[in-house]
Structures are given as C-alpha cells and as structure tokens.
Design a protein around this nucleic acid. Structure first.
Length: 114
DNA sequence: CAAGTGACAATAA
DNA sequence: TTTATTGCCACTT
C-alpha cells in the first residue's frame, strides 16, 4: 500500500533494491533493469548493481540471482567468482545458455507482470 | 566535512 | 542495425 511504499522510499533507493532482490524466488534470476524498474527507477539500473556491491546484509540479499540485461554474469563481480555464481544458480534450477549466460527466457523473474 | 567512485541500462544519432 | 553518451544514489576515502 501507499503507506508501506512510502516507508520504503524513506529508507532510500538502495533499501528498495534490497527488498526487491530479496523477493527473488529460488530457481529464478532478475536483471538489473528489471529490479530497477520494480523499484520505480529504470534509469538507476547502475545503482542497483552498486547496491548489491555494498551488500550491507549478506545472506539476505541473493546477489547471485541478479544478472545483466543480457543474462550475462560478470566474472569480476561475484563473491567467489562467476564459476561459483553459476554453480549456485544452476543448483537452484536456473537454466544456463552458456557458462556465463543465464536463460532469461526460462528463469526470468518476475515471470508475470504483478 | 567534501568529493569521487561504482556489478548497468536506456535513449539518441 | 550498432555505437556512444547520459543518468544518478549511496558509500568510501
């Protein structure tokens, strides 16, 4: 609702990003642009990634479920390496097109426009 | 206290 | 069609 949404705004743009990324279900992945759009600011996709970079709440924010708009994973951004990130996503049931590309067509989230 | 940097995506030409 | 530029918040030093 508005009040709740308003509270999120008060927390800051990053807090909204964390909240959205936190809602990504297991076996699915979301792109920075998708998350940015969900928070209401598709122009700030850049900070969505930076929000995860700071990751003030490890274990709560599945950064590995967030990938580029192309579904590609940057090898220098993962916590332990793109290989580990791919392993985590694959273990959750996410489909992979290549060693560094996720099948957004199969595991894109949100699947439906809520 | 102030300034710079930073995991991308969308738009324009 | 592809390439280049812009946008912008929070956190770090």
């Amino acid at each position: 609702m508005a009040a709740q949404d308003k509270q999120a705004q008060r927390e800051g743009f990053f807090a909204r990003v964390y909240d959205v990324v936190r809602q990504i279900p297991c076996g699915m992945v979301a792109t920075y642009g998708q998350v940015a759009k969900l928070v209401g600011e598709p122009r700030k996709a850049r900070f969505v990634g930076f929000a995860l970079h700071g990751n003030p709440e490890p274990g709560v924010i599945p950064c590995h479920r967030v990938v580029f708009a192309d579904g590609r994973i940057c090898e220098g951004f993962a916590f332990g390496g793109a290989d580990v990130q791919r392993r985590l996503l694959e273990d959750e049931g996410v489909a992979f097109l290549d060693d560094t590309h996720v099948d957004l067509e199969a595991s894109r989230w949100p699947a439906g426009v809520e």
